[in-house]
Simulated assay, not measured.
Amino acid sequence: MKPVFIALDFIDAPTALKFLEPFKDVKPLAVKVGMELFYREGSSIIKQLREQNIDVFLDLKLHDIPHTVQQAAKQIGQLDVQFTTVHSLGGSEMINAARHGLDEGAKKAGVNAPQLLAVTQLTSTSEEQLHDEELVHVSMAESVSHLAKTASQNGADGVISSALENELIHQAVSNDFKCINPGIRLPSNNVDDQKRVVTPQKASELRTSGIVVGRSITQSNDPVQTYKNIYNAVNGGIK
Rank of each mutant, 00 (worst) to 15 (best):
P3S: 07
P3C: 12
L8G: 10
L8T: 03
F10Q: 03
A16S: 04
A16W: 06
L20Q: 03
L20A: 04
E21M: 10
P22E: 10
P22K: 10
F23W: 08
F23R: 08
D25S: 13
D25P: 02
P28K: 13
L29Y: 12
L29P: 02
A30G: 08
G34F: 06
G34R: 03
L37K: 02
L37D: 05
L37N: 03
F38L: 08
F38S: 10
R40F: 09
E41N: 05
E41K: 07
I45P: 04
I45F: 05
K47R: 15
R50Y: 05
L58K: 06
D59S: 07
D59R: 03
D59G: 02
L60N: 05
L60E: 09
D64L: 12
V69Q: 11
K74N: 11
K74Q: 15
K74F: 09
Q75A: 15
I76T: 06
Q78H: 03
D80E: 14
D80M: 05
Q82Y: 13
T84I: 12
H87W: 05
L89A: 15
G91V: 12
G91A: 13
S92C: 12
E93Q: 15
I95L: 09
A98T: 07
A98V: 06
R99K: 14
R99N: 14
E104T: 12
K107R: 15
K108G: 11
G110W: 12
N112A: 14
P114K: 07
L117I: 10
A118M: 04
V119Q: 01
Q121V: 01
Q121E: 10
L122Q: 00
L122K: 00
T123N: 00
E127S: 14
E128C: 04
E128A: 15
H131Q: 14
E134F: 14
H137S: 07
V138L: 01
S139W: 00
M140D: 01
V144Q: 01
S145R: 09
K149M: 07
S152D: 11
N154G: 02
N154Y: 07
G155E: 05
G158T: 09
V159H: 03
V159K: 04
I160A: 09
A163R: 01
E165Y: 06
N166M: 06
L168I: 14
I169F: 01
H170R: 14
V173K: 04
S174D: 12
N175V: 09
N175Y: 10
D176C: 03
F177A: 07
K178F: 11
I180L: 10
N181E: 08
G183K: 03
G183M: 06
I184L: 11
L186M: 13
L186K: 03
L186W: 06
S188I: 10
N189D: 15
N190I: 08
V191P: 01
D192H: 09
D193S: 04
K195L: 01
K195H: 13
R196I: 02
R196Q: 05
R196P: 00
V197T: 15
V197H: 01
V197A: 08
V198K: 01
A203H: 02
E205K: 13
R207I: 09
S209G: 08
Q219G: 13
Q219E: 15
N221H: 13
N221W: 06
D222R: 07
T226W: 00
T226G: 08
N232V: 11
N232G: 04
A233I: 05
V234P: 01
